[in-house]
């Protein structure tokens, strides 16, 4: 690793300004997990790191806002989110997904903002949060904007964030009466990166689904909504025959990317199976 300058601005806006000024020579660092891995590999060789550790405390908090949505600061650690009573109570699927995300030490330091901004399709929370309808507030040197989380990722390790822009917080509608599940499929060690992840969020009455959101991750470059599979679920009673069609539709509407976790053909099979299982798991959830 090469030496670099470490800056510690006191406000998020100041951090954005510093990053905007330095451009590619600088990188933001939150929990620092992904950044350290890339620095060590020599993939990144920045002149400056802009630490977000000292910015305003409010960017680390988790709170319920006035319209009943959960606001999670971008610098909240994954472990804080996992252990938050509010999160467990209002969005239990998020706490469940976090339990199998990397390991305790990584969750202790990794931040939600970094987790999302890294744009690695193997991350576990984007599919869950997208399926729940979350949005992100982004702060830049000139101001801020809000966008659906579904629009954040532009490609493998790529976001739509402009130079100097930083994720400030995530706003996520609470689960409420919606039933949700996230299934992570690993094909090597149990705590491996996922070969694919499937998030299912359903509004259902008994076994009849009123609406469904299904999002797949890891098998594709960016988390992807499975709209055709979702459409099949709308307004119908769930049974094995229907689920078979849902699984098939899901496998047909995306083109999985083969990698060390499995070939594209295998991942298509997994997608079929895991979409069916995720819907079942969501229905079984509260």
């Amino acid at each position: 690793m090469k030496p670099f300058e470490l800056l510690e601005p006191r406000t998020l806006r100041e951090a954005a300004t510093l990053l905007h000024a330095a451009g590619d020579a600088a990188r933001p660092v939150g929990g620092g997990v992904a950044i350290m891995l890339m620095l060590k590999m020599g993939v990144l060789q920045p002149e400056t790191l802009v630490s977000l550790a000292s910015v305003e405390d409010r960017y680390s908090t988790i709170a319920l806002d006035d319209d009943g949505q959960l606001r999670i600061g971008a610098l909240a650690t994954l472990r804080a989110i996992e252990r938050s009573g509010l999160v467990r109570d209002r969005i239990p699927v998020l706490a469940q997904a976090l339990r199998r995300l990397s390991n305790v030490r990584v969750r202790n330091v990794a931040t939600l903002g970094g987790h999302l901004a890294h744009a690695d399709p193997h991350m576990d929370l984007p599919p869950v949060l997208i399926a729940l309808g979350a949005s992100v507030r982004v702060v830049g040197p000139a101001g801020e904007r809000v966008m659906p989380l579904a629009d954040l990722h532009a490609g493998y390790l790529e976001t739509v964030l402009a130079r100097g822009e930083l994720i400030a917080e995530v706003t996520c509608p609470v689960q409420g009466s919606r039933r949700a599940a996230y299934l992570k499929c690993t094909t090597r060690a149990a705590d491996d990166w996922p070969a694919l992840g499937v998030a299912a969020v359903l509004e259902a009455e008994g076994e009849v689904v009123r609406s469904a959101r299904l999002v797949v991750s890891a098998a594709t470059d960016v988390p992807t909504r499975l709209s055709r599979a979702e459409a099949l679920l709308r307004g119908v009673r769930i049974d094995d025959a229907l689920l078979a069609r849902v699984g098939e539709a899901a496998a047909a509407e995306v083109t999985p990317i083969g990698d060390e976790h499995g070939s594209a053909a295998y991942k298509r099979e997994l997608l079929d199976v895991y979409v069916r299982r995720a819907v079942r798991a969501a229905l079984a959830a509260r």
Partner: peptide, 21 residues
């Protein structure tokens, strides 16, 4: 013995082999 190698063999046995990719 990967999960994929097991599924491929199973599918072979069932006469519905997975594609090569």
């Amino acid at each position: 013995i990967t999960a994929e190698s097991v599924l491929r063999a199973l599918r072979e046995q069932q006469g519905r082999p997975l594609q090569a990719d």
